[in-house]
Amino acid sequence: MSELRISDLHVDVLTETGPKEILKGVNLTVGSGEAHAIMGPNGSGKSTLAYSIAGHPKYKITSGSVTLDGVELTHLKVDERARAGLFLAMQYPIEVPGVSVANFLRTAKTALSGEAPKVRTWVKEVNAALERIGLDGTFAARSLNEGFSGGEKKRNEIAQLELLNPKFAILDETDSGLDIDALRIVSEGVNRYMEQGDRGLLLITHYTRILNYIKPDFVHVFVDGHIVAEGGPELADRLEVDGYDRFVKAAKVDA
């Protein structure tokens, strides 16, 4: 049983005019085997939550804690957090010219497991993972994300999720910009990952659409830098009908 625990997390974003507080005390615990959806309007700080947990240098954790099985992640470097078992599927995956997908995956797998994967089985595994997600064999030899369409980048993120198989995965708006077929294929990849039974998922999304394919155990509504409502999958159904307005107005009254 693993656990990703976020406690009273406060985060500033570093802007040209100085630091600006984005996260204002986030509390959330994800156990292995659980899928949590974080839903909120644009600008509520959902992505900041994802990137600050992963350790992006643009964000400064001012107080609070994030632990993975008791290990304080906020004290670790970006790559050490990944090696502790964390994975972030990014909303805008970065292009790295000249670094092939195959080389990147092998390097990452080696770093994560501490030894180079067996060439023979690994190549097959990579090709199979790419194929399952609808990326043909040529993608292994292509530069990482370079010239990929938006949808291909997202597929590549989920192929990585399956190949690197972390303890906990944060998916930052993986559904945005996907057409209906891509959304289904990407969701199937996430479901395969969760079907292992001992993995945890934090699914960050603006829309309820992806929840038709990936069933969350818990739904959290995120407004103005913190969680304002929590519930089961039925909460997402209410959001589909009512939208975020009710929560945004309530947050304003509280402020």
């Binding site: 790295v96 670094v99 990452a108």
Partner: peptide, 13 residues
């Protein structure tokens, strides 16, 4: 951003 992306997959700096 490139370094962050690679490191977020466990690759040391």
């Amino acid at each position: 951003e490139q370094l962050f992306y690679l490191r977020s997959r466990g690759i040391p700096e």
